[in-house]
Amino acid sequence: MLKLVQVEAKLFLREGASVVFALLFPTVLLLVLGAIPALRTPDPLFGGLRFIDGYAGTLVVITLAFLGLQRVPTALATYRERGVLRRLGTTPLHPGKLLAAQLLVNLAAAVVSVVLVVAVGKLVFGIDLPHHLVGFTVAILLGAASLFAFGLVIAALASTAKSAAGWATVAFMLIMFFGGAYLPRFLLPDVINTVGQYLPPGVAALQDSWVGTAPSPLHLAVMAVIALFAGTVAARTFRWE
């Protein structure tokens, strides 16, 4: 199993463009936005905060959405389409371990990316370190779990790698929209922000635990339920060939 994780990690790192995007994009975006003076000045429009503070949670959403909805489903659907899963099915290894290895590698990538964005945010723009570290960690883990499980459902239900990529992109757009990636959350109507709070990966919990006080237990619980439900659906419907 350890070897499998190592190999999957190496394969992940060899996918040049996706690694750069997943690991560096949120940090690059933060640097670009932070380079605009108006966005690093507190303003009532931004809820009395600076734009970049109000955007912090969304940066984590971008990372998780990209990994969970772009990397995970297409990687697994491609493995299935190319017979990689079938091939593993002829060995004593349970193919479920390959799924686990994939998720672990993507979770590790998410952690690296988030640590990077938090560090750059602190060092360059003085964005506070997460106020509620435990809450932030739990919010990331549950957010990743719910979104990766969502990605697994797509991988399970899509018949080909192409259709998996298609569905994943639709989901990716929606999650990015509700997560405030296109329009920051303080500009979005309340109703959309309310929906966004309960959609994976839970942008509100991420935002609250980073620059707020603590994540709402309800938000975390909803992410846990989504992760469990989607995970079960994926496990029930996943086809190895």
Partner: peptide, 13 residues
């Protein structure tokens, strides 16, 4: 040990 018809490995392994 099984060698399957048309089964592949990941491209970059």
């Amino acid at each position: 040990g099984v060698q399957l018809q048309e089964s592949q490995l990941p491209e970059r392994i």
